[in-house]
Design a protein around this nucleic acid. Sequence first.
DNA 1: TTGAAAGCGCTAACAG
DNA 2: CTGTTAGCGCTTTCAA
Lengths: 349, 349
Amino acid sequence: MSRTRQEEIVAARPGVRPADGLSISGVAEQAGVSVATVSRVLNGHANVRPATRDKVLAAVDASGYRVNELARNLRTAESRLLLTMVPDVGNPFYAEIVRGIDSVARQHGYFMLLCDTGADPGRERSYFDLLRRRRADGAICLDPATVQQALAEESGALPWVACCEFDPAVGVPYVSIDNYRAAGDAVRHLLAQGHRRVGLINSDDDYLYAQQRQQGYHDALMEAGITPHERWRMNLNSLDYEAGASAAAMLMAQRDAPTAIFAVSDTLAIGVIHGLRSVGKRVPDDVAVVGFDDISLASQIDPPLTTIAQPMRELGETAARLLLQRLANPLANVPGVLLPHRLVIRRST
Amino acid sequence: MSRTRQEEIVAARPGVRPADGLSISGVAEQAGVSVATVSRVLNGHANVRPATRDKVLAAVDASGYRVNELARNLRTAESRLLLTMVPDVGNPFYAEIVRGIDSVARQHGYFMLLCDTGADPGRERSYFDLLRRRRADGAICLDPATVQQALAEESGALPWVACCEFDPAVGVPYVSIDNYRAAGDAVRHLLAQGHRRVGLINSDDDYLYAQQRQQGYHDALMEAGITPHERWRMNLNSLDYEAGASAAAMLMAQRDAPTAIFAVSDTLAIGVIHGLRSVGKRVPDDVAVVGFDDISLASQIDPPLTTIAQPMRELGETAARLLLQRLANPLANVPGVLLPHRLVIRRST
DNA sequence: TTGAAAGCGCTAACAG
DNA sequence: CTGTTAGCGCTTTCAA
């Protein structure tokens, strides 16, 4: 893409704002009262005479005054900001979870701000620093367990909870589904259709859920008397469509290729379908595909995708509640929560 | 979904954190120097004797001290936080833009935090309040022009810029593509394939881009001697797949239904393809489809989608630079920027 | 090179 | 019901 017509960015000159400089004392002066009274009005304290209150309110909106929350927060030692860290905001799976978090946060008077970590420990750490440095009150982490472990050591008692992805050993409150069982359900569905050679397209096992689902896949096959072949499994370091597509093509290149594929994410599964098509395989006639998550796109593609539905909104809401609990009562023992999943059968199997 | 085993959330007890209470003066004490010296070391000021510096540094990491940025920011009157407001984090189009913003912000020592506004003026306003109240230094807004207009009035000189969606009349720095020309290019491509009845599936015209693309569509047809029929056009209040699907079905239900459809978003277009299929139409044989944005999914679906590519990453990067410029020099006249688009021809046309 | 002290804007005792 | 005042934790003159 071509050059744009921007100019050089000059050195930042911090602290200078255009028409600024209105503080609580200015308002107090205008209203002819003390700063304490203004503060009381601003914070809705009861013991202020209506007439006084009105004077203050008048002065406030005559002047367009807004509290400086930096100052307020310094005083009250809370920011009413919650952070949500996701490995990839581009993955639609996270969007609905994030909405769940946001709605609960909002209900409780908190702002939720989203951080894209790219599953990178460095980025993640820098966001955790916002917590350490009091710029946020708490955080919800959806990043890989490996990242969480690293973080847990250096940020012991920081107020955060894990969502979707958790390591019980880390000792942090969490909410998730039962990934092991869910993967088993997916595979058993495939087995019930008569498939014996079932492939697994997994993300890389930095993610604990990847390990759990792999175990679920493995055990479900074993229980059916099938020893899953190493060749049937691929671990990818990406959940992008492209990654799924090329993995599927590689899987099909083998002799005795699987007749069914379980992908641990819908985005992967959608890529898989594309990849299958590109090597001349039809879904589900030649190869059946089941995904994971039930993102809204899953029902829109051709063929509509069979998948494991996660209660995304509820996952987010629960995570937020867990965090709020922890904030309200830092010492209490906050429980881990497992929410139910559901197999949604569509036409890809 | 079933009950979870959470407990009641008790009333928040603000300001209380577990093992806390370490401030700069504590470090100063431990190091046997003054707070001023600690501050100087922390901020990398040159005039500190190496031996002193070492003492301080030792005390810092012996104690695990972190600056309280609330206090620092109060002093310096800047937060080094940038806000990005998007109407829907679930729309993949925004993800790459957000990454562009983030990378530039990060390079310049800023944090970028994402806000999902749901295109709701109320939510948007509440995020703008973070700016007004000094919790963030600047903002990038991708919300509809109508929202921006409403906001512009009440938040005159606040440091923000518009991205993708802008109204020149608002007088705020912006970066976008030329939506009018891009839409024209899409339609002219369809015309070149011999189509005469071209449908338009648009979002609702709170979005200025929707109006601009509609005009581009309209004029391109007129120039080809075709008067576009009202019936060929649908305005949707959603960019979800489902919305595109049902709109397409409705379009096809008419006599003299369009033989080609231009959808103003890839998500819509993907829904359109699904909807077309559900009423027995083949793409592109019966109906051609062109989308807009070129999200990564566009190449993965069947058939791969012809679309207008926007330079998403660059849009984000430029928006961030514009904002940084504005912050560095609040009085300077920051330009509007238009970036080039590109027609990507795949198999849906 | 270092320290003492003022003050950023606000809230919350404590008095009155 | 209202005002005075002491900090929250930090940066930054100003003096030494």
